[in-house]
Amino acid sequence: MIFWRAIAAAALLATNSALLAGEIPPDERRSGYSFMGPDSRAMQDDDTSNPGMLFVLDGEALWTKKTGSAEKACADCHGDARSSMKGVAARYPALDKTLARPVTLDQRINLCRGNHQKATPLSYESRDLLALSAFVAHQSRGVPITAGGDPELKPFLEQGRDLFMQREGQLNLACANCHDHNFDKRLAGAPITQAQPTGYPLYRLEWQTLGSIERRLRSCMTGVRAQAYDYGSPELVALELYLMSRARGLPMETPAVRP
């Protein structure tokens, strides 16, 4: 026992002096794109070879399709997405005044379905939800990310940052251990990126399909043998908000391709 207390005291002294390296300075932030090989880049750059574009096309069809008991299409309220949705994804997750908390683009789509279309919510990672959010986010391709600026989001942003720095799981690793302190290194041969959320939803070759950022975060959590948060949970929304604010200024890429 005495022995253990001595260790704890020693750990305290050591940690006070050996502080972690800071966050990545704004001008050194790089999209996952810059870590990829030429083949994956070419696949993302060419719309005819980017498999994510099939989802964008599906989303475009859903945009004008009347649904729910209100028999309204997204387009009936929002018109031409090319103008009305430009830049929208770049500022999500955004504050919902009624709910008094940030909501993700996926959640916004389901709020619109429930409140305005009187339709049932689409489930997370369903083809239709991915297609709609890919279509909406695609309208922001090239637009710099601005999310997280609203002062009312501050507590949620801080929660996200704390979660990013928190060690967790049986392997006891924080997101920051890999994505702030070890990007550009290799984990089992694969490059570790800065975890910039620029391209979601995106096509992952490993998944053989489009996936949301929540799917990605959950697989990183599972990787460190932590209990992943549920889809749509406040923790995943806070993490996404922090990641988006951390990526401020980087251009949106949806639908990106990643290995």
Binding site: A11, A14, G169, L171, H181, T222, R225, A226, Q227
Partner: peptide, 26 residues
């Protein structure tokens, strides 16, 4: 490994508690 370097990223392989949000199976 944290005995050598409290900030290390190397996991402690023989430890069964005091960790955050460990997955159900572990």
């Amino acid at each position: 490994a944290a005995r050598f370097n409290p900030q290390t990223i190397m996991p402690s392989y023989y430890r069964n508690g005091g960790l955050v949000r460990v997955g159900r199976n572990f």
